[in-house]
Measured scan of single mutants.
Amino acid sequence: ILQTYRAIANYEKTSGSEMALSTGDVVEVVEKSESGWWFCQMKAKRGWIPASFLEPLDSPDETEDP
């Protein structure tokens, strides 16, 4: 089962193997590399994304803190 994550910042791809993101995009993580790059898919797009640009979809938003 794939894990679902949300983009927390815009990411512009710098090579053909990467995938561009916009803040709020929801992606499915296909593979996690120890290098800190994750292979993700979103609709018909697939590519590598730095893991630091993603957060788990089920994590609470910062605005929901008590």
Rank of each mutant, 00 (worst) to 15 (best):
E31M: 09
S35H: 10
G24A: 02
T4I: 11
E64V: 14
A44Y: 09
V26W: 03
E55T: 09
S52F: 06
K32I: 04
S15A: 07
K13L: 06
D61V: 13
K13N: 12
T63R: 15
K32E: 03
G47W: 00
E64T: 14
A7E: 01
A20C: 08
L54R: 01
F39M: 08
E18A: 06
S59N: 13
T63S: 13
T4Y: 13
A9V: 06
S59Q: 13
T14M: 09
E31P: 02
G16D: 15
R46M: 07
E28P: 01
R46E: 11
S17Q: 06
V26T: 10
M19Q: 02
K13V: 09
V29K: 00
D65C: 12
Y11T: 05
V29I: 07
T23Q: 12
T14C: 09
I49G: 01
I1Q: 02
P60M: 12
V26Y: 07
K45E: 14
A9R: 14
Q3I: 10
G47T: 01
K13C: 12
P66G: 08
S35C: 08
T63L: 12
P50Y: 02
V29F: 02
E62N: 13
S35F: 06
E55V: 12
K13F: 06
V27D: 01
K43V: 07
R46A: 10
T63V: 14
E55M: 08
R6E: 04
K32A: 04
D61F: 11
R6I: 09
A7M: 05
S22P: 12
T14D: 08
M19P: 02
K43D: 15
V26A: 04
Q41M: 06
F39L: 15
I8V: 04
E62D: 13
L57V: 15
D61R: 12
S59T: 13
V27W: 00
E18L: 04
S17E: 15
Q3V: 11
P60F: 11
W37Y: 12
Q41D: 04
L21I: 14
E34S: 11
Y11R: 11
V26K: 08
T23H: 09
L57F: 13
D61P: 14
K45F: 05
Y5I: 00
D65L: 11
P66K: 05
R46H: 10
I8F: 03
A51I: 03
V26G: 01
W48M: 03
Y5G: 03
S17V: 10
A9T: 14
E31H: 10
K45H: 10
S17N: 14
T23S: 10
G24K: 03
W48N: 03
E12D: 10
L2N: 15
S35I: 05
Q41H: 06
E12S: 10
P56F: 04
L2D: 15
I49A: 11
E31T: 10
S33Y: 07
L2F: 15
F39G: 01
T4L: 12
Q3H: 11
D58Y: 10
R6W: 02
L54K: 00
Q41G: 03
L2C: 14
A51E: 09
P66E: 07
N10D: 14
A20I: 04
V27T: 02
E28I: 05
D58F: 09
K32Y: 06
K13S: 09
E34R: 09
A51M: 12
V30L: 15
Y5S: 03
D65T: 13
E18P: 03
D61K: 13
S33I: 04
L2G: 15
V29M: 01
E12I: 08
W37P: 03
E18R: 04
S33C: 11
T63P: 12
G36N: 06
C40M: 02
R46Y: 07
A9K: 15
S15G: 07
L57G: 05
G36M: 03
L21V: 07
K45M: 10
I8S: 05
Y11I: 11
E12G: 09
K45C: 09
E31G: 05
G47N: 01
L54P: 00
M19S: 00
E18Q: 15
A7L: 07
D25N: 05
V27N: 00
G24E: 03
E34K: 12
G16Q: 15
S33E: 07
R46C: 10
A9I: 05
Q3N: 15
P56G: 05
P66V: 07
N10V: 06
M42H: 14
A44N: 15
I49Q: 02
S33Q: 08
M42Y: 09
G16C: 13
M19R: 00
L57D: 10
L54T: 00
F39W: 09
Y11C: 05
F53M: 12
V29Y: 01
D25H: 00
G36Y: 02
E34M: 08
L54S: 00
G16F: 09
V27G: 00
E18W: 04
A7R: 00
D58G: 13
I49S: 03
E31W: 07
W38E: 00
W38I: 03
V30D: 03
E34Q: 09
R6N: 01
A51W: 05
Q41S: 08
D65W: 08
A20Y: 05
M42C: 14
R6M: 06
S17C: 09
A9W: 04
S35A: 08
G24L: 01
E31K: 11
C40A: 09
L54D: 01
E62Q: 12
L2P: 09
Y11E: 00
P56E: 10
E28Y: 06
G16R: 10
G36Q: 04
R46W: 05
S59H: 11
A44L: 09
V29T: 02
C40I: 05
F39T: 00
T4A: 07
S22A: 03
I1L: 08
K45Q: 14
E34P: 14
I1A: 07
K32W: 02
T4V: 11
K43S: 11
E28G: 04
D61N: 14
S59K: 14
K45G: 08
S33T: 12
K45Y: 06
S15M: 10
N10A: 09
S17I: 14
V26R: 08
E55Q: 10
A9E: 09
S17K: 09
S15F: 07
V30P: 01
V29A: 05
A44F: 08
Y5M: 08
W37K: 08
L57Y: 15
V26M: 08
P50C: 03
V27E: 01
L57A: 13
F39K: 08
W38K: 01
G47V: 02
P66D: 07
Y11S: 03
W48E: 01
S52E: 12
L2K: 15
A44T: 14
E34D: 12
I49P: 00
W38F: 08
L54Q: 00
R46S: 13
L54E: 00
W48Q: 01
E55Y: 04
V27Y: 00
S52Q: 11
M42T: 13
M42F: 10
T14S: 11
A20D: 12
S17P: 06
F39Y: 14
P50V: 00
S17H: 06
L21C: 05
E31A: 08
T23G: 05
P56M: 06
T23A: 15
M19A: 01
W38G: 00
A20V: 05
V26H: 08
L21F: 05
G36C: 03
Y5T: 02
P66L: 06
I1F: 11
I8Q: 04
Q41C: 07
C40L: 00
P50D: 04
S52D: 13
V26N: 04
E64I: 12
L54V: 06
W37S: 05
D58V: 12
W48G: 00
T23V: 14
D25L: 00
R46V: 08
E28F: 04
P60V: 13
D58M: 09
V30F: 05
A7Y: 03
K32H: 03
Q3E: 15
K13E: 07
T63G: 14
E28C: 04
P60K: 13
N10T: 10
R6Q: 07
T23I: 15
A7F: 03
E31Y: 08
D25A: 03
P56R: 09
E31C: 06
Y5R: 02
N10F: 04
G47S: 02
G36E: 05
G36I: 02
D65S: 13
F53R: 07
V29D: 01
S15N: 14
V27Q: 02
W37F: 12
A7D: 00
V27R: 01
R46D: 05
G47R: 02
F53C: 15
K32R: 09
S59D: 14
V30Y: 05
T14H: 08
A7Q: 00
Y5V: 04
P56V: 07
S35Y: 07
K32F: 05
M42K: 12
G16K: 12
L54M: 03
D25P: 01
P60Q: 10
L21K: 00
A44S: 14
P60I: 12
I49D: 01
E18D: 13
S59F: 11
R46G: 06
Y5F: 09
K32V: 04
T4S: 13
Q41L: 05
V26F: 06
P66M: 06
E34I: 08
P50M: 03
A7K: 00
T14A: 09
D25Q: 05
A20W: 04
V29E: 01
E55I: 09
F39A: 02
D58C: 11
D25M: 03
D61M: 15
E34Y: 06
W38N: 02
S17G: 11
W37A: 04
E12F: 06
S35D: 13
